[in-house]
Nucleic acid binder design. Structure first.
Length: 533
DNA sequence: CTCGCGGTTGCGGTT
DNA sequence: CAACCGCAACCGCGA
């Protein structure tokens, strides 16, 4: 029987370095590239309009690129298993190909589709191309569990050798396009999806493989910059991004991590002196690999309860604090500027994410990291299930990072790289004319100064919702208590705790009683939907 | 079991 | 101005 295939795009929205697309093309008399609009995402996911736009742009560009290799992209809507059942018959399909996806919802979805394919006699070919390595191999090499430190990941990865080389663009596509293509399979607009394009922010980072490769090229041409890149030294509050902003493209797979990796390797080869992981650009790809790997095998990775690597902390429930944080109304200009940039533009610098995440959780507001994670999930163009959860655990000192006494100052941190507060002036325009002396702490400005600046704190701009210097030590104490109350590591139940440390009496309890937030109450399905893809 | 070390990105001070 | 210290002290890891 002649091979007739479907390549199912989910992530991996590209034609370069796409091994499963190649597998679909090989010796196929017809190869249909499809993308399924899964209604669960708009229903249950936190997808803000900027990311919808990014997705549609990426699909548009993918179609354009597929045309160049004699093909087209077919958009279909519905539950994947239903859609595919239909298409298998309609197109007389013998082979289905797709890229491996390690997220929980994707795993369920794909298992269901694999079953369907088996029933229909359709061969399934899946390839790893969203991560540098097959995360399963990393776990295997680590003895069956995920590495829990970056160091350990580096060791395991070095045992695995170099990641696979990128594969070429397929050259032998045969896709028959019926006359009803435009009517049935064309790429929808935001309006088709019930969205209003007017709600979008400025389009600073257009979606798509073409843009991704242009951007990669532009970054890699700055060889000196690449070779001296140290992530912690880049600026969170520059007016132009101080990092690559390749993350949204990696998230959707518009850019292959392996393509980027080998571009870096080339540059490093030609320049003996260059930075190294964890701070280098290569190091950033390894962070991604690290968090994808842990996320792929850790139960309930995106929540606190029943997450074996997450310290249980009785966070406060405080909807007012949460809302003020989300809407950029905390009264701390640096924090508010970052949140405004996030909501409007969909990308903020990594250290800016640190600042606002620390502020929301252990630093100031003592609200659960899960709440912050949901907000990031909605607004970030690069919202990536594993990375988002992992970084929120990191910043809230719930996992990976434990030095909870290192607290970012919402006042001092931004000053290091933006003394004049130009970033604040841009993203909190009401503070535009506040004198530099007060720009990070406008509530300290004399009333006359506030009047002259056209910004009265308390009416034009909020008063700070907490006193950072007072709340910080209290929260540190609460963190210490939560750590002390950790159950002993459950080896085989014989050791009862860690001796003296656990015996120390409970210290301060914090100002308000701790209504611990009940997390993980959502249905599994709802959780799986969020933030994926 | 204990110990010492290191941990991508704290702050505010001093040298 | 970069580098170091004290602050008070966390964790996981490996020896």
């Amino acid at each position: 029987m002649a091979k007739r295939s479907i390549h199912w795009f989910r992530k991996g929205l590209r034609i370069h370095d796409n091994p499963s697309l190649i597998a679909a093309c090989e010796n196929a008399e017809d190869m249909k590239p499809i993308f399924i609009l899964d209604p669960w995402f708009p229903k249950n996911g936190n997808v803000g309009i900027n990311r919808w736009r990014f997705l549609l742009q990426s699909l548009q560009d993918l179609d354009t690129n597929l045309k160049k290799i004699n093909s087209r992209l077919f958009i279909v809507q519905g539950k994947p298993v239903d859609v595919l059942a239909d298409l298998f018959k309609k197109w007389n399909i013998t082979t289905l190909t797709y890229e491996v996806d390690t997220e929980p919802y994707a795993k369920l979805r794909d298992a269901e589709v694999d079953n369907l394919a088996r029933e229909c006699g359709v061969e399934v070919i899946k390839c790893v191309s969203h991560t540098l390595y097959d995360t399963k191999r990393i776990v295997e090499k680590n003895g069956g569990s995920a590495p829990l430190t970056y160091k350990r990941l580096q060791t395991v990865v070095s045992m695995l050798g170099s990641p696979p080389k990128p594969v070429p663009i397929p050259s032998n596509c045969k896709t028959s396009v019926s006359k009803d293509y435009d009517q049935k399979y064309a790429i929808p607009t935001l309006e088709d999806l019930g969205k209003d394009a007017k709600d979008c922010g400025p389009c600073l980072f257009p979606g798509g493989e073409t843009e991704a490769l242009i951007r990669l090229d532009r970054m890699m041409k700055k060889t000196n910059w690449v070779c001296t890149f140290e992530k912690p030294k880049t600026e969170p509050n520059s007016l132009e991004p101080s990092t690559t902003v390749l993350s949204p493209y990696l998230k959707f797979g518009c850019l292959s991590p392996r393509t980027m990796y080998y571009r870096l390797v080339d540059i490093y080869k030609q320049n003996k002196k260059h930075t190294a992981p964890p701070v280098s650009l290569e190091g950033q790809l390894l962070w991604r690999e690290f968090f994808y790997t842990v996320g792929s095998v850790t139960p309930n990775f995106d929540q606190m309860v029943d997450n074996p690597i997450c310290i249980q902390i009785p966070w406060d429930t405080n909807v007012e604090f949460l809302e003020a944080w989300k809407q950029g109304k905390t009264g701390f200009p640096f924090i508010d500027a970052i949140m405004n940039q996030l909501r409007q533009e969909g990308w903020i610098h990594h250290l800016a994410r640190h600042s606002v995440a620390c502020f929301l959780t252990r630093g100031d507001l003592y609200v659960s990291w899960e709440e912050g994670k949901k907000v990031f999930e909605e607004y970030l163009l690069d919202a990536d299930w594993s990375l988002n959860a992992a970084n929120w655990m990191w910043l809230s000192a719930s996992s990976f990072f434990f030095q909870y006494f290192r607290v970012y100052s919402p006042i001092a941190f931004g000053k290091k790289t933006d003394k004049d507060g130009n970033y604040i002036r841009k993203y909190v325009p009401v503070l535009k004319h506040m004198p530099t002396q007060y720009i990070y702490e406008p509530w300290t400005a004399p009333l006359k100064v506030q009047e002259k600046a056209g910004c009265i704190v308390g009416s034009d701009y909020p008063k700070p919702i907490v006193e950072h210097d007072k709340i910080r030590p209290i929260n540190i104490q609460r963190m210490a208590t939560a750590y002390k109350n950790r159950p002993a590591k459950s080896d085989s139940g014989k050791s009862q705790g860690k001796g003296q440390k656990r015996k120390t009496e409970q210290t301060t309890q914090g100002p308000k009683g701790k209504k611990s937030k009940t997390t993980g109450k959502n249905s599994k399905i709802t959780d799986f939907i969020k933030g994926g893809n």
